[in-house]
Design a protein around this nucleic acid. Structure first.
Lengths: 136, 136
DNA sequence: CTTGACTCCGTACTTAGGTACGGGGTTTAC
DNA sequence: GTAAACCCCGTACCTAAGTACGGAGTCAAG
């Protein structure tokens, strides 16, 4: 059970050291045990958690949403139905994101593959393909 | 060819009116023609563009990246190879996002479906499943 | 046993992406 | 033909998410 210092876990997690303190304050990382001298002692899983947070941000989730995602697994001692409901909502959200991304990808693929004839500057299908008033 | 006012296009695009001006400054919307009195005249496509921008943000793209995506279709008069290269890069990025989201979804699905026995609080697979040091 | 690297903390600053304000002109509906 | 509802612009303000600062304590190597 190797313990990591703040600097080390930040390095492994790919974030700034101050970000660790910030996440602790935000409640995204629970307060770690301390040494005699008051130094934080992190488990290696914390680095993993940091990478997850980072990646989730790149996917458009806010820190609050990420906190939600993390509590879905960290405290499954709540009412089961509640967790279920929230998880289902996240799944739907994620499916929507995947769909939109897939549509974007298709458009870009077409752009690359056969845009020789699409060289004029109006009415390329990129915008239309992702539209449809579907709000999320 | 109905022209839209700033307020109307903002409404249709689902954004604040001030955001229109902001995007114009940022170069995400090109400067529209004006009336005698100096009022902006937008085409309906602008609303579509706004919805695209909004959605792309929710998918974790920065405004700069979104600008990139939009120029990929708005000015295909650049060197073809350049567009191709940038489009390929975006496609790879998007594929990565889709993969990560799909993994997240799977985990949540499992959580919902069979987490009865996963009720203890350590070592749920959610973090591990998305990990692997793969940075983007 | 000291020097350099690391940690602590509170607080202040920064960046991205908007949003609001307010004084002025314009357009539309009575 | 005037009041309400819009629009203009420059500028100031705001929120989320960090990031930096700096004075003080700590740890590890020589």
């Amino acid at each position: 059970m190797e313990k990591l210092t703040t600097g080390r876990v930040a390095q492994l997690g790919g974030v700034n050291l101050e970000t660790i303190r910030y996440y602790e304050r935000r409640g995204l990382l629970q307060k770690p045990p301390r040494t005699e001298a008051g130094y934080r002692q992190f488990s290696p899983e914390t680095a993993q958690r940091l990478r997850f947070i980072k990646r989730a941000k790149e996917l458009g989730f806010s820190l609050d949403e990420i906190g939600e995602l993390l509590t879905l697994r960290v405290q499954p001692k709540q009412k089961r139905g509640d967790v279920r409901t929230r998880a289902e909502a996240k799944i739907a959200d994620i499916e929507n994101k995947i769909e939109t991304l897939a549509a974007m990808k298709t458009v870009l693929r077409n752009l690359v593959d056969q845009c020789e004839h699409c060289a004029s500057d109006d009415e390329c299908p990129i915008l239309a393909s992702l539209d449809g008033e579907r709000s999320l």
